[in-house]
């Protein structure tokens, strides 16, 4: 019974009650993923499971047996920040920084969804195969990540720049 975390195989806890979030923070000493509401309302605990963004607080670790989970710690490349992390710094995409790991993991998963053509509530033409990442699209798709400092303008700018330079 194991799960791959940031490229390393890790034994799953014998206690099925352990959430994926608690596994990361309390068992594996990966505190980058944050505990916000712990009930699925804030997005601070967002990680990527097989590339898809999920909430680690609502996930039991045992449900992710055999899958690959990437946290904010896993986004750095040889000790260097990910380009989206640089963009958040450049555009003041945070103040206190508590929601930032969740924002960044969520944005990376969100951009994959856009590339795949997943529509959103504000997508006018559901039959369209390609989606333009307008400001409205971006804000709707990132609505699951709250920022109590209200750094939303910087967050939108950082993600927009990263998306445009990643094409």
């Amino acid at each position: 019974m194991s799960v791959n975390i940031n490229g390393l195989s890790v034994d799953l806890p014998s206690d099925a009650r352990v959430s994926l979030l608690d596994l990361l923070r309390d068992h594996l000493d990966l505190p980058g993923t944050k505990v916000g509401c712990n009930q699925g309302a804030c997005g601070a605990c967002t990680v990527l499971a097989d590339g898809e963004r999920i909430l680690s607080c609502l996930a039991l670790a045992v449900q992710y047996e055999g899958r690959s989970v990437t946290t904010i710690e896993g986004l750095t490349v040889e000790g260097s920040l990910h380009r989206l992390q640089h963009a958040f710094i450049e555009h003041d995409g945070f103040q206190c920084g508590y929601c930032t790991p969740g924002q960044i993991c969520s944005a990376i998963g969100m951009l994959r969804e856009v590339q795949r053509g997943v529509p959103s509530l504000v997508t006018e033409d559901l039959s369209s195969r390609s989606i333009a990442l307008t400001r409205d699209e971006l804000r709707e798709r990132m609505s699951g990540n709250l920022c109590r400092c209200g750094a939303y303008n910087g967050i939108v700018e950082a993600i927009t720049e990263f998306a445009e330079t990643s094409k």
Binding site: G43, E52, R53, I54, L55, G109, P119, S127, G144
Partner: peptide, 23 residues
């Protein structure tokens, strides 16, 4: 679903967040 039952896609997309819909 998107082309034949657009309201179903829209209803799902109106609910929760991207992360929760993935789970």
């Amino acid at each position: 679903v998107r082309t034949r039952y657009p309201l179903l896609a829209r209803a799902i997309l109106a609910g929760a967040s991207g992360q929760i819909r993935n789970m």
